[in-house]
Amino acid sequence: MSLGRSASRRARVRLAAVAGAVLAAVAAAGCSSSGSGGGDAGSGFVAGKGGIDTAAAGHRPTAPDISGETVDGRKAALSDFKGKVVVVNVWGSWCPPCRLEAKGFQRTWTAYQGKDVQFLGINTRDTSVQNAKVFEKNFGITYPSLYDPSGAQILRFPKGALNPQFIPSTLVIDRDGKIAARAIKPLAEEDLESMIKPVLAETS
């Protein structure tokens, strides 16, 4: 093999290794998707450990009253759960990190049912509702999810509160309808609980 061919082969191997590392980093951070997202200027959130941001009471943006048809064909609205702590999870059946966190979300939902906590999903960018139904069946999801293929519900959130370019994303909304915590990444069960517990402990 000539020196030129050997150098070219080494360059291709290095390029492949770099590309693999980049793809792994993207997968670890979550699925990205097209859409316009706002920055964090003036959002009131303070960056915390592990990519979980929080906003102190009195400095929290108001969550919009998202509503519409759910994956199973029913109706749901955020206002249905007024007075409860609400966990809003944005997911898509096409998103590998969403599949990784799904069972943990269901286990956490089961543990917190009856404790003034409600889960509400937003399924987005699934071109067929059937794909979302299969996802819910496969992972045993029992809490409702709005079917939002265009991302319209996501874009109703105030600028800086939720970036539609990052899926999965999770918000915790306090009893007064204010956004208290967010994570723009997939969550382990312990991380999800670390977002819920402080908000649940607050008095309205």
Rank of each mutant, 00 (worst) to 15 (best):
V13D: 07
S36W: 01
G4Q: 15
S204V: 12
S6V: 14
D65I: 02
T142K: 11
G50E: 06
P168T: 05
G114Y: 00
S32F: 14
K137Y: 06
D72R: 11
R5D: 11
F45V: 10
V13C: 06
L78E: 11
T70I: 09
M1K: 13
A76M: 04
G104W: 00
A188Y: 13
F135S: 09
T124Y: 10
S79R: 07
K133S: 08
V13N: 06
K133H: 07
D40F: 10
V172G: 13
P64G: 04
V18D: 09
A28R: 07
Y112W: 06
D148K: 10
L200F: 15
A11I: 14
R60K: 02
V199L: 12
I179K: 08
T62W: 00
A201L: 15
V46T: 15
L200C: 12
G73D: 02
F45T: 11
K49L: 10
W94R: 00
F105I: 03
P168F: 00
A21P: 01
S169W: 06
I122Y: 00
V86F: 05
N138W: 04
R60I: 01
S204Q: 11
K159Y: 04
E189Y: 03
L15V: 05
D116L: 05
K185F: 02
D176E: 12
L200W: 15
A7Y: 10
R74L: 11
R9E: 15
R9Y: 15
A41C: 00
K75A: 10
A161N: 09
W109S: 05
A55T: 12
D40T: 07
T108D: 00
N89R: 04
L171N: 08
A132G: 10
M1C: 09
S33P: 00
A76D: 03
M195N: 12
D116Y: 06
S36A: 07
A25Y: 06
V86S: 04
G20W: 04
R125S: 06
W94K: 00
I173P: 03
F135H: 08
E190T: 15
A56N: 09
V26P: 07
F157W: 12
E190R: 13
V13M: 10
G160D: 11
L155S: 14
V18G: 07
V129W: 01
I179R: 08
L187K: 00
G121Q: 02
G83E: 07
Q130T: 07
V46N: 14
A152P: 03
V13W: 10
K103Q: 08
G104Q: 01
T203E: 15
A183T: 05
R125M: 04
K197W: 13
A25R: 01
P164L: 06
T62S: 14
R99C: 02
G121T: 03
D126I: 02
T203D: 12
I141W: 01
T54N: 09
G42Y: 01
A76H: 05
N163Q: 11
D116M: 02
G39I: 03
N163A: 13
E202A: 15
G92T: 08
F135V: 07
W91R: 01
V199A: 14
V46C: 07
K137P: 05
P158F: 03
G42L: 01
P97T: 02
C95R: 01
G58V: 02
D126M: 05
A56Q: 14
G50C: 02
V26Y: 03
S204Y: 03
A17G: 15
V117Q: 06
R14H: 13
F157Q: 11
P186N: 08
